[in-house]
Amino acid sequence: MIRYHPSKQLMHKHVAGELPVGLSVAIAAHVELCDKCRAEVEAIEAKQADMFFNGETHVDSEIKDVSSIEDDLLFDAMLSDITSLDVETEVVPHEVTMFDYQDRSVQLPRAIAALKLGSFMNAGKVSRARFELDEGPMRSSLLHIKPGGEIPEHTHTGFELTLLLDGTFEDESGKYVPGDFIMLDGRHNHTPKTEDGCLCFTLVDNALHFNKGLSKLLNPIGKLIY
């Protein structure tokens, strides 16, 4: 059962189109996997649509700005042009996109499957490939960890989002299942590890900071490899 979800504030911003691409992709993918959040997003969309199409504005017509009136006329003309276009009625079936890893084949959520993925880099039992998105300091990746693998204990100099797509992993806070949407920041230390292997969509906006052992040697170059 999925226990970790995006906040209501994030979902409202997602519906309004106010989030960076990677974060919006993660929420859309989570919504595809989570019945609870899908219903909540549909309710937010319905409410916003109702406010847009049925909301009343109380503006005195004698003092309404001329440019605002012109904007309204232009919008009405644009809407008329759109609704006069021929509509294609043929339904194109969605093509399921599968991702093969560790002798498994996983159906990727549509929002993730639509992205272009770079090449995988391997470090022991952990493999990562970045999605080719122009997101400024943010980095979106597909990450998979082989059975028995773990990422050394670390905290975060920014935030880290993990959407579990397949398999399970656990850390100091508990065990996660497909669909779990986990957001962490500098307040959290954890050591993710998996018994049977897992596949994740990840998003970070800064380097991880490793706390123990030889992994601490990566901290000076963390900004270059995150």
Rank of each mutant, 00 (worst) to 15 (best):
R187I: 01
S24T: 02
E56L: 11
L199C: 08
L117A: 05
K175G: 05
K36H: 12
G124Q: 05
I82L: 14
D103C: 05
P93L: 10
L74W: 02
D100V: 07
I2A: 12
G158T: 06
A111W: 06
L184E: 14
S215Y: 13
E42R: 08
E70R: 06
G118Y: 01
V96H: 07
Y101C: 09
E170W: 03
S68F: 09
H144D: 02
L79D: 13
S80Q: 12
G222A: 15
V31P: 00
T155L: 10
H190D: 05
D171K: 00
V177N: 10
I145H: 01
E56F: 02
A77Y: 09
H12V: 09
V15T: 11
L142D: 08
A29M: 03
P147N: 08
L164E: 05
T89D: 11
H190S: 04
T155I: 05
I2R: 12
Q107N: 07
P192S: 09
D50I: 00
N206W: 00
P137V: 12
I221E: 03
F181K: 01
D205N: 15
F210Y: 15
P152S: 14
S84V: 00
H190G: 04
S119F: 00
R110H: 10
D185F: 03
P178W: 09
S67C: 06
S141M: 13
L184S: 13
T162F: 11
E45Q: 14
G149N: 07
G186W: 06
E132I: 09
H14L: 04
A114K: 12
H30G: 10
T57M: 11
H94R: 10
L218I: 09
V92G: 01
N189V: 08
E195H: 05
L203C: 04
C37T: 15
E45I: 00
A49V: 01
G17C: 02
L184W: 04
G118C: 01
A49R: 11
Y226N: 05
N206F: 01
T83G: 00
P6Q: 04
C198R: 03
D171P: 00
E170Q: 14
